[in-house]
Design a protein around this nucleic acid. Structure first.
Lengths: 171, 171
DNA sequence: ACTTTTGAATATTGTACGATATTCTAATCA
DNA sequence: TGATTAGAATATCGTACAATATTCAAAAGT
């Protein structure tokens, strides 16, 4: 014996699925499957960015300071194929805000101009220094008085790997 | 007139596709489509991490310092749903390595214990300070002699938003 | 009149499948 | 004999579709 019948408004409502929104099937390389699944299960890594700036009116702690959403990878990595990280060691650059153990974001595609902080391999040893170019010479300058500048010479092999764009410091 | 015929080794070889590896179709929420497409087109954000540590033997600049692969989001964000960012303003924490304009990674799920650097809303104004708890009182301590500690009082409304885990500094 | 039952209606989801792309070799041609 | 070509073989890719999940309200029951 039939129950129900034709009627309006029946059926499963929209937005009741796992993600509360429509989905589209796309193909993912197997090596990235894990990363992608993690990304969608955390609903993306775009997290809110707040500002310390003074607000007019009567601020509520929840909403008034919001500056937008931020994805760390996009913010820190402008050239994914030319970027790598270096873990800093030593205190030669503390005055530039680089402490031992910090992770440095390094971009190979940025030109190593005078004044930039660079990662260089000096005789096979990695080091972080500020590049100082004068008309005559080029130096790798530490930013800590306890350390000595390194001069580019013929006999020491200096290779500049890239320019430091950001420092990630653990508090 | 037929040409070709049964034979071994015919057909398109494996690994000739867009991603040089097998793929699987999975469903992606539409709001994350862009992020996912960007992720797979850049082959992921896991970039190499090198170390400054001294190597034995004769190091080659390319390989010897490698420490592994690093995904910034995974490295910096332990609790995606409890994490947000704050752009620091002012110099009250320079001695803790926090400069004006730095992005702070803040985790709400970490307990704000004595000694931790926290984000607090003091009378509706966001501020970064080190939490100092004694038996009697609780203070928000700046890490710069030019600033004064803030005492937790009845009359000023202090809400601790979360604990700072990392500082992202632009050089 | 209220509760319960049942099938209709529709969104969602994983994956099977057709269409396409690519490469290889035997047959044909010069 | 070497170059060319047509078809065979197989991987790849987007998406259509079957199966599932979920909700709604008319009909039946109490």
């Amino acid at each position: 014996m039939p129950r129900g019948g034709a009627r309006l408004g029946a059926g499963r409502p929209k937005g009741q699925g796992k993600y509360r929104e429509p989905t589209k099937p796309i193909r993912i390389p197997e090596s990235l499957l894990g990363e992608v699944i993690e990304l969608i299960s955390t609903e993306g890594y775009s997290l809110p960015l707040y500002s310390c700036a003074v607000q007019a009116g009567f601020p509520s702690p929840a909403d008034d300071h919001i500056e937008g959403k931020l994805d760390l990878n996009k913010y820190l990595i402008k050239h994914p194929t030319a970027t790598f990280f270096v873990r800093a060691a030593g205190d030669s650059m503390v005055n530039a805000g680089i402490h031992s153990g910090d992770i440095l974001v390094v971009d190979r595609s940025i030109e190593a101009k005078h004044g930039k902080i660079v990662i260089a391999a000096v005789d096979g040893q990695l080091t972080v220094k500020r590049l100082h170019k004068s008309k005559k010479d080029t130096y790798l300058m530490p930013e800590n008085n306890d350390f000595e500048p390194i001069k580019f010479e013929e006999d020491n092999e200096v290779i500049i790997w890239g320019v430091v764009t950001n420092v990630l410091h653990q508090v």
